[in-house]
Structure formats: C-alpha cells, structure tokens
Design a protein around this nucleic acid. Structure first.
Lengths: 156, 156
DNA sequence: CTTGAAAGGGGGCGCGC
DNA sequence: GCGCGCCCCCTTTCAAG
C-alpha cells in the first residue's frame, strides 16, 4: 500500500550479498561473526553489508516463523473474494480488519482478492466468511497440504 | 510434506508466550535482554521460554524479510494449477523444482494447487508457465497490490 | 576490503531464593 | 519464577595497511 514501486534505487546486490541473504533466510538470528565465516568476510564488513541492505530496503526486517497449529489454527483456507458492485473499498477494509485474514493480494481478473485465512475449525470458517458475504461473493478452497512453504526466489 | 499433523502436543501457550511471539514477529533479531523488558520477565526466564517454544515446535525458525523487487522480481502472480489426468504427482514435482514458485498450497476443489510466483517480467511469466502447461491447465492472476502482507493471526 | 585492539554489552550457566 | 555473579563471546568502533 502506498509504496512507490517505481523508485527502487539501482541497488548493487553482488554475489556476497546474495549469499548473506540466503544464510539469513535460513537463520535470521545468526550472529554476525558466524555469518561472516559463512560468507568469507570479516565481521565488520559483514555487519556493514547487513546495515546497508537494511537501509536500502532490501532487508525489510527480521521475523519469526510460527507454526499456526501451535496457536490453535488447525485449518487454512485460500479464499477468492469478488466484491459486489460498489463494495470494493469496503470489502478491502473489512478484510484488513479481520485478523484471521493473514495474507491478501489484490489481483487482476474476476477474483479481486486472493486471501489466506488461518482458522480453528470449519465453524470458524463459516463465521468469518459470514462477515464478508453481504458485500462480496467468495470462493473457498481448503488447504490440504503445503508443498512449498514461503521461500526465497532464485538470488540473481 | 510428511508432517504429522495429528501429533501436535497440547502446548501450554500462555499470555507471556503470546506477547513474546508478537515481539519476535516484529523484530526477529531483538536481544534477549531487550525482549525480556518488553514482556516483563527476567532475561534468563525469557531465554528459557524462547528455547522451550523452539523445542516444542511453536517457533519453527527465524528468517529475514526480503523485498523481492530488490532482487529484480518486479512482478508477482497467483497461479491456480489443475493437473491433467494422471499428472498430479509430476506437476507437484515440477512446481517444486521451479524456484520462481515461492509458495504452493494443495487445496480442495477443481484447482488442485494455488501458487505464488516471483517474476522479472511478463515474458518471464510466460516462460515459467510454459514449463507446466504440458501437464496442467493454469489460471493466472497478476498481483496489483498486497493489502495484507503475511502477518500473525490473533494470538489467543 | 583487511587485521588488530579496546571498550561495552549480551548471553549462558550455575547458584540460592 | 527471580536475581546474582562469573566468564566468555560478540558487537562496535577505531586505527592503520
């Protein structure tokens, strides 16, 4: 939202930066000294590269990967949402306010939004979808398995 | 894949654990001492909770959030994939091997897989989809915006 | 970019409470 | 669960090559 996609500065990401990113992707809390060994640089240089990648916006932040089942979310659904005429903005706001929507993309085509929901049960799914069905048509697919968990694209 | 969804132990996640998770989600590299202040515990207790959450599998790991545009992926697509008869397993393998598929869920309904692709251009999209069209029908939606970046569900 | 040194802080461990 | 002390390692900064 509100991001200026056209103003990405021409960042010079070299091979070492890419290796650094790959290591951080697999262990976001690795010590800089250890990271330095992995990429074959000194600790100060490695720390400076990390800072540079952060200020450049390449690294947007660090986070923890949580198993949703441990929080009671034993069900995941992919829901496509088609707002009724004139309801697009209200639907987007509604989705944003419902925390069970953990991911949402606005896309081309008939399905305006493609969303991922974390849910505790089928009843929970019905409950959540009820909050948008007045303003949008929905098409729901239950996640049976996740062959690819979110991963990095090819670096380079 | 191969995960035993039925064997999740009844983990006692209390309010402090949930706060700890929320803080780590917004800053995965925060120091334990600082994290301790945020959750109102001592550093040793906080460190022990982190270790416990990791061994319990609640915390699956720590990672870095990378802006795909910084790596040249200026385009994102959500692709639904319907394997042709008898091709399901081969399609899944093919998708898994193509690194531009950065996310993939196997779902109920006609669309067997729902995937996210990172791409450099429209030509790149055509190139990648060409690798699966012999074995599957695809339905592509280009991402125009992302109202909700992957976030945590309600911690309760 | 490197090495080396110095200063400050953090982490891990074990203790007693 | 907490606080303390201890020691080591890590991080950061600076200098100089």
């Amino acid at each position: 939202m509100g991001k200026n996609l056209g103003s990405m500065p021409q960042t010079g990401i070299d091979a070492i930066d890419r290796e650094l990113i790959a290591v951080l992707a697999s262990d976001g809390r690795i010590a800089v000294s250890e990271l330095a060994k992995r990429v074959g640089l000194s600790a100060p240089s490695t720390a400076e590269r990390m800072r540079r990648l952060e200020t450049q916006g390449v690294i947007r932040g660090f986070t923890v990967d949580i198993d949703p089942r441990a929080l009671g979310y034993t069900l995941q659904a992919i829901v496509r949402v088609q707002p009724l005429p004139g309801q697009l903005h209200l639907v987007e706001e509604a989705i944003r306010r419902i925390p069970e929507f953990v991911e949402c993309d606005k896309v081309t085509g008939d399905d305006c939004f493609v969303c991922r929901l974390y849910l505790r049960s089928i009843e929970h799914l019905d409950d959540i979808l009820g909050k948008v069905t007045e303003r949008a048509a929905t098409s729901t697919a239950i996640v049976k398995a996740t062959p690819i968990e979110r991963r990095l694209p090819p670096l380079g």
